[in-house]
Nucleic acid binder design. Structure first.
Lengths: 289, 289
DNA sequence: GGTTTCCCCAAGTTTTTCTAAACGAGCTTG
DNA sequence: CAAGCTCGTTTAGAAAAACTTGGGGAAACC
């Protein structure tokens, strides 16, 4: 490499390649289109090859640019991710939770914690970033409700929007609607299925019943709220939506199997006061509900 | 992220963290130490946290910096690697070879190819970068000498420097010296071992004989040239060193097993004239030797 | 105790980067 | 088919970084 890569030009290239438009890239970067054009030209000169084909009024990548772009994007994403994680360390307490649990249970209660402890900066991270050193407290979901660190456990009930609920009088009616369930891909917990619930409710799931698997519990609940079907959801996580009338439980029957959320404290942080304060607050919240 | 990362400052940080010295970093970057100091300070301000501990006269990373550094380094390496590979595309022909084969067989003959075809830019890549699209022709080593695309095959013979060779009169003398062999970790070929050669030569390898495994054939041959021991080397690759008197074959006995170099042409490039010209030249070179 | 080795700071200069404005090529539109 | 629009390029000058110089201090080395 004759001279070190022009990094800023590289970032401009990356954004421009994403949009396949210098104008759009200039907006994202808060620059003028001229600046983008210049930076890209600089990079192309540095590499000694064209990255874009400027066929008048339409922009596309050359084969070289096509090969280069995804790798450059990946590198920048890695930088971005590393930086974001570094910045998390500025919080005095970092709590990693499953996305749905965070959205539907933790976040709605968190304002009470802030009220009591305004001096503690809490960061709520999604489970996806469960790398060592990235969190102080982690909450994880597992099947069953045994274990020394169980925070709270829940069963599953069918829920749906109020309109749909009015059409359901008995479990077998479910065969006429779309059944939503969570396709928890990587999670260790065994996802509950409709088949089991129906059997438990004394009905039979027809082969023809339409099912829709959502990749994420929040998405599933959102679909249920919008009336797209009936979801098999954790009772623990629907309290607020039920209270607001957005969701209704058409049948009381819950499931015999339960899932539990387990509380883990990262090694070496147990003696920090924020950590124990938060853990105690969590347990108090569980008891209060 | 309030404002996009200062990429150049990030690179400076990366270099400084590598050396744990602003002065050394400034040399590598062809800057003054003051410039390095300023860039690092800029980055630290941007992130809102310290990355280095400046204890007078000794520099070290903070825990945050310690976590950040390897990830930043990785991202820059990825960029560097992607760019290097992109630049290879400027060559009209990219040939990937095992490192030792390239050093000892291909490169010494390559000047004849350039003489005949000065218009073809050849890039010789090491096997390590065997990713799709990165090469036009690949040469790979495998055990045995069967296969439709065998370029050339070879057996193995002991070689060493001339001084050491004068002390060896029969195979059993090898038990008194260091035996060098190639620890070809990832290669699919089964590395030949001294045990087998000794048995074939009618001698016995003593348990006490000192062996030294080198990770790379070139390193092994270099050790042999320097008189550090006797190497079990591919006869194909030692011709030039033997001719120059740097290496000597103390025993004529070669091995019953052979390895072959196979020639692979990447998909979709077989019809390019440079490719067929080079392949024909390779075969002609094999016949000529 | 002097010397060396680091790093930091402030001021000034160089280099890079960006903007503004004008231009040109193709596409759309009336 | 010509006017208007979009989009990228170019140039020159302005703004903003980045870099150097020179000075200083604190530990470490001899």
């Amino acid at each position: 490499m004759k001279r070190s890569l022009p990094l800023n030009a590289l970032r401009v290239f990356q954004v421009a390649a994403q949009h396949l438009s210098f104008t759009k890239a200039s907006e994202e970067l808060s620059l003028t289109a001229a600046a983008v054009s210049q930076q890209v030209k600089l990079l192309e000169q540095h590499l000694g090859m064209a990255l874009f084909v400027r066929s008048n009024n339409k922009l596309s990548l050359t084969p070289a640019g096509e090969r280069y772009f995804p790798r450059v994007r990946e590198a920048f994403r890695a930088l971005q991710h590393a930086t974001a994680q570094l910045l998390d360390q500025k919080f005095s307490l970092r709590v990693a939770v499953p996305a749905t649990f965070g959205t539907k249970w933790l976040v709605p209660r968190l304002f009470r914690f802030f009220g009591k402890h305004p001096d503690i900066d809490v960061a709520v991270l999604t489970e996806a970033q469960l790398e060592a050193g990235a969190w102080d407290i982690a909450i994880e979901e597992r099947a069953g409700e045994e274990g020394p660190h169980v925070l709270v456990a829940t069963d599953y009930v069918p829920v749906c929007g109020p309109v749909l609920a009015s059409q359901l009088t008995q479990p077998s009616d479910l065969n006429a609607v779309t059944l939503l369930y969570e396709r928890s891909g990587r999670r260790s917990a065994i996802a509950p299925d409709w088949n089991a619930w129906m059997a438990h409710a004394g009905a039979v799931l027809a082969d023809t019943t339409r099912e829709l698997g959502l990749g994420d519990g929040t998405m599933m609940l959102q679909a249920a709220i919008e009336g797209q079907g009936v979801a098999l959801a954790q009772r623990l996580l629907i309290a607020y939506d039920v209270a607001a009338g957005r969701l209704v439980e058409p049948f009381a029957a819950s499931t015999p199997w339960r899932h539990a959320y387990h509380l883990t404290v990262a090694q070496g942080v147990a003696d920090r006061s924020e950590v124990s304060i938060f853990c105690e607050w969590l347990r108090a919240e569980v008891l209060a509900s």
